[in-house]
């Protein structure tokens, strides 16, 4: 039985189905519609089946499946090419949780954590461009490690870190804006943007430390 030429579908299913909840969760956060998420998961599973012989034994099946899922998503939904615009938004305003630290930090915190609506959080996350949204979903909602996220995104861990950094700050800026719009907290005069270059990966950090002293 060991040397069969065609593996049965049950073998494949046994391997892939344990990841279904993860795949569906990520698909839903990416597409925001249950029907679309199901379609995306189906496409992912069928592709995985077709390319099953390209899956390297001993490597991370979870990351491999998520890579197929995100590629399928990109092909399907041809994301708006507005990344640069977004980047400018992040950089022009060093706005993030710091902005919640208003005159009375306790008020601001309770506004953010207590009164923030799940609907707003969902919308703010969904509005992030995919390059930033995916690492935030994988790190914060699915608890993947940087290495696993790097495997999924096919990029170095340093890139994962800088995208997480920007994605989270953008998300926080938007939630802050919602909170101001809906009057939950009072807006603040923006402080002059920090001009210094941000180093957001470990390699860069170690280098900076060495140079500094």
């Amino acid at each position: 039985m060991l040397f069969r030429t065609a593996p049965s579908k049950p073998d494949f299913e046994r391997e892939v189905m344990p990841h279904l909840r993860l795949l569906y969760g990520v698909a839903l956060r990416m597409t925001r519609a249950e029907g679309d998420a199901e379609d995306l998961v189906q496409e992912t599973v069928l592709r995985a089946y077709r390319f099953w012989d390209s899956f390297e034994a001993g490597t991370n099946c979870k990351a491999w499946l998520l890579r197929i899922l995100t590629n399928s998503f990109r092909n399907r939904y041809r994301e708006r090419e507005r990344e640069q615009e977004i980047l400018d938004e992040v950089e022009s305003c060093d706005a993030h949780l710091g902005q919640f630290q208003g005159q009375n930090p306790r008020d601001a915190e309770s506004a953010l954590f207590g009164r923030m609506l799940s609907r707003d959080v969902e919308k703010a996350l969904a509005d992030l461009p995919g390059e930033f949204r995916l690492p935030v979903i994988l790190a914060d909602l699915e608890d993947l490690s940087y290495k696993e996220i790097a495997d999924v995104m096919g990029c170095p861990a340093g890139t994962v870190m800088s995208r997480l950094y920007r994605g989270r700050r953008l998300l926080q800026k938007r939630l802050h804006d919602y909170a101001v719009e809906s009057g939950i907290i009072r807006g603040q005069q923006e402080t002059a943007g920090k001009a210094e270059a941000q180093v957001v990966d470990l390699e860069g950090f170690r280098k900076m430390k060495q140079e500094g002293g």
Partner: peptide, 13 residues
């Protein structure tokens, strides 16, 4: 998913 896989031709291994 099970039905969709049923409809797929068998993969060679």
């Amino acid at each position: 998913l099970h039905r969709a896989l049923e409809a797929e031709p068998t993969v060679r291994r």
